[in-house]
Design a protein around this nucleic acid. Structure first.
Length: 215
DNA sequence: CTAGCCTTGATC
DNA sequence: GATCAAGGCTAG
């Protein structure tokens, strides 16, 4: 967690996106490592054990996350939404308190996908638990994308948003429920959720977003 | 614009 | 060569 904060502060120093509009996200990779280091967002075991099958990996992730259940998730969701509205830029651009809140909420989301099938006492041992659900929309995951297991559509959505620097607005309260059937309805909230669950480009180089995305 | 499939490049 | 993830392409 704290380590991540440091990463964020590091990010602040390099802003490839805003600096070079033509740059591709890939150009943002941090120095030498092709993948960002594991973090508290529930990121994949990166380089440590790539051979691990997705299913197992998911289980491990979930197990690691001391089982936050649906209620917690929901609470954090509404909280984080407010945070994002008011201090998202701080989340990305500072290493201060706002960043901490951002990280905390990220950690709380990693188990999102399970929320649909898990109960507080029911844990990730069973195959059901893992269902390979996208933490953003609950659809079936297609693999690791931008740091975590997501579905193909959210992968593409995140890619388009970041690469094209899309600007979305929420017509509601910026707290729209995102699931497989409603994910198209509010791209703003969908992207919020993508960020909250921990999706990030290599090197987390999308710090241009606060200026553009949440105007 | 979305989402699924395909290609490409990196890594092991 | 196999696997994985990012990005490209394109039908709907």
């Amino acid at each position: 967690m704290l380590l991540d904060m440091e990463n964020h502060s590091t990010l602040l120093l390099s802003s490839p996106f805003s600096a070079n509009s033509g740059d591709s996200p890939a150009a943002c990779t941090q120095s030498s490592s092709p993948m960002p280091p594991p973090n508290n967002y529930g990121s994949p075991p990166v380089s440590t054990d790539i051979s691990t099958p997705y299913n197992n990996t998911v289980c491990q992730q979930q197990s690691m996350n001391s089982m936050p259940h649906h209620h917690q998730y929901t609470m954090m969701m509404s909280q984080s939404m407010n945070n994002i509205d008011n201090s998202y830029s701080s989340y990305l651009f500072s290493s201060g308190a706002s960043a901490i809140s951002g990280i905390d909420m990220g950690a709380g989301y990693q188990i999102t996908g399970l929320s649909t099938s898990l109960t507080p006492g029911d844990l990730p041992d069973t195959k059901d638990c893992i269902e390979e659900l996208c933490p953003v929309c609950g659809d079936k995951v297609s693999g690791y994308h931008y740091g975590l297991l997501t579905c193909e559509s959210c992968k593409g959505f995140f890619k388009r948003t970041v690469q094209n620097k899309k600007v979305y607005t929420c017509v509601a309260e910026r707290s729209c429920h995102i699931d497989k059937t409603q994910r198209k309805r509010c791209p703003f909230c969908r992207f919020q959720k993508c960020l909250e669950v921990g999706m990030k480009l290599e090197g987390e180089c999308f710090n241009f977003l606060p200026d553009v995305l949440f105007a």
